[in-house]
Design a protein around this nucleic acid. Structure first.
Length: 728
DNA sequence: ATCACAATACTTTTT
DNA sequence: GTATTGTGAT
């Protein structure tokens, strides 16, 4: 059968096993995603299962997309992220699937179908508000910490009544928990944990509904099972019932989300609760050289209480791993770029085959700067920072408010953004008026928009009333057209009527960047035209790992070690191998956390197919202060015979191209002459044609600013960018 | 009362 | 590099 070609015997066994509880323990690079996709196809093809009877859960949208693509290829149809429609396979993240479920069944729940999903900063705002309401200073009690405790409780399905407060801080958390949940409901909002929690509750409290879904989805598959938390596990158990076809795939050594409530002991629990489970091991690695696998095993073997695995490959020994120490994080970034350049010039790898991994997001800064300075493109995974930008949050807050006027957090964000004469005092009065009338603040605004007929007009000073009424009218208008107007038109109308561009784009470079971000979000919205506001907002809330934002095709990828799970690259850099960074200092005093840091390093190592380059910096700037650091304690666990202490690639570099292509190793030289002029047409190998809009001599190089076709403006170092002058 | 700017403190990992 | 808070000018 065609489906089974190219599978080894272990993989084939997993794919063809008869339905029932199955646990696939898969090592890194063993083709588990493939096995999952083939299993889905085999269920349909061989066991006669309808695709619509299959539900497959992943942890990231990326994994869902990838699996959808594979299944589609094998089967000709897969309806990713659309759990209950069109007859395809229901495929998506736990959170996305739950969000859809809750919207469908909202009649049974204490919030409406239009609920919004609060992101981290909204959650913090709410905790802050709750703290204030119980007369605690958000400055003395960190909102993030309190929310962490609440979040953990929710992931453990510990509801308020069962929340035990055995310390002072826990008692604070308990009180905040109570207020926080009330506030969420009042905002008609859910946080990430709620999506799972309410789904579990829904099934626990409505047997008929559970029975319906069990009938509807007799076949369930789960990827990255080691990263399920209690809520997810219970949800799976509920859906699966006592004699399920439940096919789970995981690797306890790659469990890296303990801090988020993930519990790899769910693997053991699964075995105990389903004694008839069939366990299949996938041991052969198809990804990495033996050198890389040996290094990975040396690292992970130090963790206690795990089942030892032998990772093997027939890919051969491969080249040695390199480890080098840079002076500081800028020097580290420089080394990354130089190494990528040299490997690329010598034809060993495409730029797009390289990935740079780090422990914390802040480490991407130095890298980005270096890439920008060198005029080289890169792909940054983790749109988090994009969606964290002020202007993006503003626009999303507007849309959320239109979709769900109960969203107070969104309202308070945009009420006076751009400034429209609604200050702190007026906001205060508005909130008071609303709470006295037992209405949402937005309802008061909408009432004010009615003009003379408004019952609230007298409550405000003339000026404040006018400002609020003005905003109320605008909001009223948007809500009215919100469902009819295409998404883009709605966005344009909001931007237009608020004068947002004038507010944000003050002509400075920063202002232009911010406006460009707005346009980028507008571009994302364009893809959601038909699906509408609800789906768009859900996407924005649940998709933070999407990498479509920087679309340079053949460029190195920058990502955290966490984001790297499930990916592979010919060349992998792991930077910041300093004690305190990896392992992170916050994990030092907790052995379980240290074990997880080690697994994180293991995950990073096993992403590499051919070449692994480890870097660290002697001096590192953190939180604004520069301090010295020691090499990571993990480094000494690497077998010395697999590692070159000095980056061996240095010696194979072609000196001529190296010097032409890099500038950092040279001393300051005398100023050079400008070769470019404003107005010139130029061509860039990656960005295409453009016009020079500015040029400046910086040290020994010329920095050219070019506006490329397609509205992209770049600062490029002339000596590196490879620009050709087309005409002057 | 509102707004612009400065000063301040914090920054692990993510759905 | 951001969110919150404080200050003085309007």
């Amino acid at each position: 059968m065609k489906l089974l070609e190219d599978l080894n015997s272990q993989q084939r066994e997993a794919v063809t096993i008869s339905p029932g509880p199955v646990l696939v323990l898969a090592g890194p690079g063993s083709g588990k995603t493939r096995v999952l996709a083939h299993r889905i196809a085999y269920l349909v093809d061989h066991f006669g299962v309808q695709p619509r009877e299959i539900m497959a859960m992943t942890f990231t949208n990326r994994a869902a997309r990838e699996m959808a693509g594979r299944v589609e290829q094998l089967l000709g149809k897969a309806d990713a992220l659309h759990p209950v429609s069109k007859g395809g396979v229901s495929l998506g993240t736990f959170h996305a699937l739950c969000a859809r479920l809750l919207r469908r069944e909202s009649d049974l729940l204490p919030f409406s179908r239009e609920f919004v999903i609060f992101n981290e900063s909204d959650q913090h705002t709410l905790v802050r508000q709750a703290l204030k309401e119980i007369n605690l200073d958000p400055k003395q009690v960190q909102p993030g910490k309190v929310h962490g405790i609440i979040s953990r409780a929710k992931n453990e399905l510990i509801e308020l009544e069962a929340f035990e407060a055995d310390t002072y801080f826990a008692e604070i958390a308990r009180r905040v928990y109570q207020r926080y949940q009330q506030l969420l409901l009042r905002n008609n909002a859910l946080d990430f944990d709620d999506l799972l929690l309410w789904a579990v509750r829904l099934f626990q409290e409505h047997d008929d509904l559970l029975a319906k879904y069990r009938r509807r989805y007799p076949h369930i598959l789960v990827d990255e099972f080691q990263d399920t938390n209690t809520a997810q596990y219970v949800l799976l158990r509920l859906l699966a019932g006592e004699e399920p076809d439940l096919f789970v795939v995981g690797d306890p050594d790659q469990s890296i989300y303990r801090w988020r409530g993930a519990d790899y002991r769910n693997v053991h629990r699964f075995k105990e609760e389903y004694p008839q489970v069939k366990v299949i091991l996938l041991e052969q690695n198809y990804r990495s050289t033996q050198t890389i696998l040996d290094a990975a095993m040396a690292i992970i073997d130090r963790n206690l209480g795990r089942q030892q695995k032998r990772l093997f490959t027939d890919r051969g020994t491969g080249v040695r791993i390199t480890f080098e120490e840079a002076y500081n994080e800028n020097d580290e970034a420089r080394l990354v770029i130089e190494t990528i350049a040299s490997l690329t010039y010598s034809g060993q790898v495409e730029p797009g085959g390289c990935a740079v991994m780090y422990r914390t997001n802040t480490q991407s800064r130095a890298l980005e700067e270096a890439f920008l300075k060198a005029g080289l493109p890169y792909r940054l995974v983790g749109a988090q920072r994009f969606y964290g930008r002020r202007e993006i949050k503003d626009l999303i807050a507007y849309l959320r408010l239109i979709h769900n006027p109960a969203d107070q957090v969104g309202l308070l964000r945009v009420l006076n953004t751009p400034p429209r004469g609604i200050g702190a005092k007026t906001v205060q009065t508005l909130l008071q008026t609303a709470s006295q009338a037992e209405l949402d603040p937005a309802e008061v605004l909408l009432d004010l928009a009615e003009g003379d007929r408004s019952q609230f007009a007298d409550g405000f000073t003339h000026r404040a009333g006018a400002a609020l009424t003005g905003f109320g009218r605008a909001l009223q208008g948007w809500i009215k057209v919100g469902n009819e107007l295409p998404l883009i038109s709605l966005i344009d109308r909001v931007l237009e009527e608020t004068g947002y561009r004038e507010y944000i784009d003050d002509g400075t470079e920063e202002g232009q960047d911010r406006w460009a971000n707005i346009l980028e979000l507008r571009g994302v919205a364009q893809e959601y035209q038909e699906m509408g506001l609800t789906i768009f907002l859900e996407h924005v809330a649940l998709v933070s790992d999407q990498d479509t934002l920087t679309d340079s095709q053949n460029a190195p990828t920058l990502l955290t070690l966490h984001a790297a799970k499930g990916l592979e690259f010919p060349v992998v850099f792991i930077i910041g191998l300093d004690d305190g960074v990896l392992p992170h200092r916050r994990s030092f005093d907790d052995p379980e956390a240290m074990a997880e840091e080690r697994r994180l390093f293991y995950v990073g190592i096993t992403r590499a197919q051919d070449r692994l380059i480890l870097l660290r910096a002697f001096r590192r700037r953190q939180a604004g202060v520069s301090s010295l650091s020691e090499p990571s304690r993990f480094v000494e666990d690497l077998p010395p015979d697999l590692v070159d202490g000095n980056l061996a690639t240095h010696q194979t570099w072609d000196q001529a191209s190296y010097q032409r292509q890099t500038r950092w190793d040279k001393e300051l030289t005398q100023p050079i002459e400008a070769r470019y002029q404003v107005g010139m047409r130029v061509h860039h190998p990656t960005f295409g044609e453009g016009i020079v809009t500015a040029t400046e001599i910086d040290l020994d190089d010329e920095v050219v600013t070019v506006a490329f076709e397609g509205d992209e403006t770049r600062h490029l170092a002339a000596s590196l960018a490879g620009l050709t002058i087309l005409d002057e």
